[in-house]
Nucleic acid binder design. Structure first.
Lengths: 138, 138
DNA sequence: GTAAGCCTTGACGCCGACGTCAAGGCAAGG
DNA sequence: CCTTGCCTTGACGTCGGCGTCAAGGCTTAC
């Protein structure tokens, strides 16, 4: 198949596929006219990349999976290098989630405090509009 | 004080402060020689911005807090517009954390599965090196 | 006098993952 | 023949939050 069909089948754009090729993640055979052609293996490879991308992996982090598939392994994560990326990603996610939860708690606390200090309470009930953003002369 | 001192007191760079000024978040009076000068109010304003930045707020999201302080309010979050930003941020964080936890679970599961399918188990114990990244013929 | 250390404006660089446009080739259908 | 719709390469644009020069001015210390 050609690049347009492949792009459509994985739900992306031709630009993205050419970008992957420029990064060395995807290779293409060519027709006599210079058109890129792909087979089902390329499709699987691409699906692997897209799955990881959806997980938030950087393109570079998908490379071991691609290499693994290219080496003839049944799955992209059949190689230790891919598993190492999984492990790093899990650790990274755990750290990120921890930090975000801490921030969430802090911001939540600030929100409660600020709401409590606001004269008309957490939600305006009887006022048509809040006029707080207009200038007050002191 | 001048820009260098202010930058040092909040732990940032002069470039950052000029950038904030270009975004309209920070204003400066000028000496006869054209040097920017700041007072303690500017310091507090800047500390407000930095605190929010540390929380992961975009610069634009700090604007209501800045406006609030400029309007003479005791804190940057003394205005409904700031509180609205808090609320949006909390919701955004909750959503993000949820998604990240789902991804974490998925990647964790893939990791376990892939480890189980690897012939030599989760951790190489008796082998000096893993030879998996070398080509296999066949 | 001159070097050091502040400051000024302006402008380009960076990162990642593409989007978008330009200018053109090739093939099929009416 | 001409349009339509694929495809090609190349190159510049995007976003945010600055970093990093360049070229120059002011002041202070030696």
């Amino acid at each position: 198949m050609r690049i347009g069909e492949l792009a459509e089948r994985v739900g992306t754009t031709t630009r993205t596929l050419r970008y992957y090729e420029s990064r060395g993640l995807l290779t293409a055979r060519r027709t006599e006219q210079g058109y890129r052609t792909y087979d089902e293996d390329d499709l699987r490879l691409l699906q692997q990349i897209r799955t990881l991308q959806d997980f938030g992996f950087d393109l570079e982090e998908t490379r071991p999976f691609v290499d693994c598939l290219r080496a003839g392994h049944p799955a992209g994560d059949s190689c230790p290098a891919s598993i190492a990326v999984y492990r790093r990603k899990v650790a990274e996610l755990d750290g990120l989630i921890d930090r975000l939860q801490a921030v969430r708690a802090q911001v939540g606390a600030e929100l409660l405090r600020a709401e409590a200090e606001l004269p008309h309470g957490p939600e305006p009930r009887c006022e048509l509009g809040t006029e707080w953003d207009t200038e007050r002369e002191g």
